[in-house]
Simulated scan of single mutants.
Amino acid sequence: MPDTSRPAAKPTPHHAGHRERLRERFLAAPDVLPDYELLELILFRTIPRRDVKPLAKELIAHFGGLAEVLNAAPERLCEVKGVSASTIADFRIVREAGLRLSQAKVMRKEVISSWSALLDYCSAAMAHGAIEQFRILFLDRQNVLIADEVQQTGTIDHTPVYPREVMKRALALNASSIILVHNHPSGDPTPSAADIEMTKRIVETARPLGIQVHDHLVIGKGRHTSFKSLGLI
């Protein structure tokens, strides 16, 4: 007769050892991991005893990519079953750390000759925003970035900007020049007629004060537009 004194051993889950193997692969070659596996590593922290691969893939599919997941609003992340407040906090931590690393490459540095790093930072900070945001980069006489400030936030397609307030802040910081930056949540960085008119008014207000407007960048998703390159400044 079969021995029934011991309970049958539970089958080993298919993902047993997966976390350790994934960590080892990440440490050996972090740049080769697909986005969903990188997202798995983040999810390990707040979901300790569950296979999180399906959740990672679902998040990527739901939002469209890793950057979109990390930049998603908390209320939208909560739409996906399995995402907790702790998970959302971890996403915010990762995003903020990456943003500060990107910012460190341009802050207190001469930015005109580091234009690609500046574009990378602006894209990381603004490309995935759900509402328009208008920020100003303030430069000194050597074109060193001395301050980076969000001046206004608006709706999904409009941000109110007041040239006098822009100049007031530039004078307070003793800035010699500025770079204007705003995002288009639609993803299309084509300047609107309102964008062009607003930029014109800022340039006209800045000129008598001896403050140069180097450029106005419109940040879209994976693309950007430069007013200077278009001959609009």
Score class of each variant (00 low, 15 high):
residue 99 L to P: 03
residue 64 G to P: 12
residue 53 K to I: 06
residue 86 S to A: 14
residue 221 K to Y: 14
residue 122 C to Y: 13
residue 229 S to F: 02
residue 230 L to F: 08
residue 130 A to T: 13
residue 140 D to R: 06
residue 225 T to P: 04
residue 185 P to M: 05
residue 229 S to N: 05
residue 109 K to G: 09
residue 12 T to D: 15
residue 131 I to W: 14
residue 20 E to T: 06
residue 153 T to I: 14
residue 4 T to Y: 15
residue 101 L to R: 05
residue 10 K to W: 01
residue 64 G to K: 00
residue 76 R to T: 09
residue 182 H to N: 09
residue 136 I to M: 07
residue 101 L to E: 08
residue 68 E to N: 01
residue 151 Q to S: 12
residue 44 F to D: 07
residue 196 I to M: 06
residue 89 A to C: 00
residue 106 V to A: 06
residue 44 F to M: 02
residue 218 V to E: 05
residue 160 P to M: 13
residue 134 F to D: 11
residue 207 R to S: 13
residue 160 P to Y: 10
residue 115 W to L: 05
residue 201 R to N: 11
residue 85 A to F: 11
residue 186 S to W: 13
residue 192 S to I: 11
residue 156 I to A: 13
residue 65 G to I: 00
residue 200 K to S: 08
residue 142 Q to I: 07
residue 8 A to K: 03
residue 175 A to V: 04
residue 28 A to N: 10
residue 123 S to V: 04
residue 146 I to H: 09
residue 59 L to M: 02
residue 215 D to A: 00
residue 116 S to P: 01
residue 232 L to C: 05
residue 222 G to N: 06
residue 2 P to T: 11
residue 83 V to Q: 07
residue 142 Q to V: 10
residue 15 H to G: 00
residue 38 L to G: 09
residue 33 L to H: 06
residue 19 R to G: 07
residue 149 E to S: 06
residue 173 L to D: 10
residue 177 S to R: 04
residue 128 H to T: 05
residue 198 M to H: 00
residue 203 V to L: 11
residue 186 S to M: 12
residue 129 G to C: 06
residue 31 D to M: 07
residue 220 G to V: 07
residue 87 T to W: 07
residue 129 G to V: 01
residue 223 R to T: 15
residue 116 S to T: 09
residue 212 Q to S: 10
residue 133 Q to S: 11
residue 153 T to D: 08
residue 104 A to M: 08
residue 164 R to C: 05
residue 145 L to P: 14
residue 233 I to G: 03
residue 181 V to R: 04
residue 146 I to T: 13
residue 42 I to D: 09
residue 137 L to T: 09
residue 91 F to K: 09
residue 52 V to D: 04
residue 83 V to W: 10
residue 64 G to Q: 10
